[in-house]
């Protein structure tokens, strides 16, 4: 019997693998906005009680997804703020939907700014390697193409569904691209002059949580001194203590495969994500600008301090530990 946490973690991971973190968080806001069509709480108190439990579930999924946690905490804060004035479910619905509208608009605004800042990192004749199916990264490149920048797009082939997602994105928009298997990238090192990445979150250990396989791509291109860019809005940052174990999820599969001559059973281990130390990157691009690793650490530290109260409110270590 799977728990709600396992189910939620599983569907988060699956949608994130399909469409990226930003799309997942947007989708979650859409579903939450329509939740009253399907969820019939007994009372206002019942809704508060269940939503509190849901926020706790979201805070302890594996992996934890920064922007989703941020959104849920914002909605919860807003619900708490209006607690005394809310008497009926329609009132509660209005408060939640208003907050979701605000969060959606903020996310759109941040994304637009990030796309503009990202666009500034692309020049004519760039040959860009993309190892991320992050919608934001793909849109940055799309915009540059639409602005008639002469660019070459190289997609690093990785997990099937992620690669298919990238291919589908460019194919649908009729943007030319080539695909190179991740394990053959060394053959095109000299043909690429920028590497673009997206990620799920940036943690207080100054590491990014990214698609599995990113680490080896970075190692390869860091070694030959090709600049590596990470694109992420600051809303995705994790302003809480992160346990490194929680950021990657190990999946052990028992595989039965038909090899040319006989059936072979073996254990196959997969990992959901990679953790990338920020120092291995050259630039981190957010909605607020383009930063070097040293600078982004300072930006993060400053914001981390600003979120002290918020952290205290939402990340009571005991509560998280009990429910983890």
């Amino acid at each position: 019997m799977t728990t709600y946490r396992e189910q939620l973690s599983d569907i988060f991971r699956t949608i994130e693998a399909d469409r990226g973190t930003t799309s997942l968080s947007n989708l979650l806001l859409i579903v939450l906005n329509e939740i009253f069509d399907h969820f019939k709480p007994i009372s206002v108190d019942d809704f508060y009680h269940q939503f509190k439990g849901l926020v706790l579930l979201v805070k302890t999924t594996k992996p934890r997804i920064g922007i989703i946690i941020f959104h849920f905490c914002q909605i919860w804060d807003e619900m708490q703020y209006h607690r005394d004035s809310i008497q009926t479910l329609p009132q509660l619905k209005r408060v939640i939907q208003r907050t979701i509208d605000r969060l959606t608009k903020e996310a759109e605004k941040d994304n637009k700014k990030l796309i503009i800042n990202g666009g500034a990192c692309i020049n004519d004749n760039d040959s860009i390697l993309i190892h991320s199916h992050s919608r934001t990264v793909l849109k940055i490149v799309e915009k540059a193409y639409r602005h008639k920048k002469k660019i070459r797009i190289v997609l690093a082939e990785q997990e099937e569904e992620k690669t298919q997602d990238m291919i589908h994105f460019f194919q649908e928009r009729e943007i030319p691209f080539i695909v190179v298997p991740e394990y053959m990238l060394s053959h095109i090192e000299s043909e690429v002059n920028k590497v673009f990445l997206g990620g799920i979150t940036f943690t207080n250990q100054y590491s990014f949580v990214t698609d599995a396989g990113t680490n080896s791509v970075i190692s390869e291109f860091h070694h030959v001194k090709i600049p590596i860019y990470m694109f992420m809005t600051t809303k995705k940052f994790s302003f809480w203590e992160v346990d490194t174990k929680q950021q990657t999820y190990k999946v052990t599969q028992k595989k039965l495969e038909k090899h040319p001559e006989k059936l072979v059973t073996y254990e196959r281990i997969k990992f959901s994500h990679d953790r990338i130390p920020v120092d291995l990157l050259d630039y981190v691009v957010t909605e607020n600008g383009v930063y070097t690793p040293e600078k982004i650490k300072k930006v993060f530290d400053k914001e981390y301090k600003m979120y002290a109260q918020w952290r205290k409110r939402h990340f009571d270590p005991k509560e998280i530990e009990i429910n983890d």
């Binding site: 709600y4 189910q7 949608i15 939740i35 969820f39 019939k40 019942d46 939503f51």
Partner: peptide, 24 residues
């Protein structure tokens, strides 16, 4: 399951995923 918020949320996310997979 209409009285369980997590279940309603999870089920609607799954449906959205199915719709997306079909839409492509």
């Amino acid at each position: 399951i209409s009285n369980s918020l997590p279940r309603v949320l999870i089920s609607n996310l799954i449906i959205e995923r199915i719709k997306y997979q079909f839409s492509i």
